[in-house]
């Protein structure tokens, strides 16, 4: 069972209180982009065995979207943070580096 800490209302919400929203930190490609970039934006997603960044919504609670970093292999949760960011916070990245040396993910490649 996955339990994530909602950074907005401060409760530890059970998976059944939440709604999964797919990969975090997608950068939208607008009308000026190439067809290949637009296709990537629409369809191509990270599917790592290990560190992953995801969007979650506290749907039965405060209703807010937030972001979470977790390991898809062990289900270990590294941390959650507000959705109003374009990249994960530095201290969270440090925590992950400590626990999973040499890790990489789409945004950090």
């Amino acid at each position: 069972m996955l339990i994530l800490h909602c950074p907005y209302c401060g409760v530890d919400a059970d998976e059944t209180d939440l709604h999964a929203g797919g990969q975090a930190h997608l950068k939208r490609k607008g009308p000026d982009s190439s067809d290949a970039d637009f296709e990537d934006y629409l369809f191509m997603r990270e599917n790592p065995k290990g560190v992953h960044f995801e969007r979650w919504r506290h749907v039965y609670g405060c209703g807010k979207w937030f972001l979470a970093a977790r390991c898809t292999n062990t289900l270990e949760v590294f941390g959650t943070y507000a959705a109003q960011t374009t990249a994960p916070p530095k201290d969270l990245l440090d925590t992950i580096s400590e626990k999973r040396p040499g890790w990489s993910w789409g945004i950090s490649k």
């Binding site: 209302c9 409760v11 919400a13 059944t16 209180d17 039965y60 609670g61 405060c62």
Partner: peptide, 10 residues
């Protein structure tokens, strides 16, 4: 105070 679900409903 807590907003959550009871059984199948909010």
């Amino acid at each position: 105070f807590r907003r959550t679900r009871l059984g199948q409903v909010a």
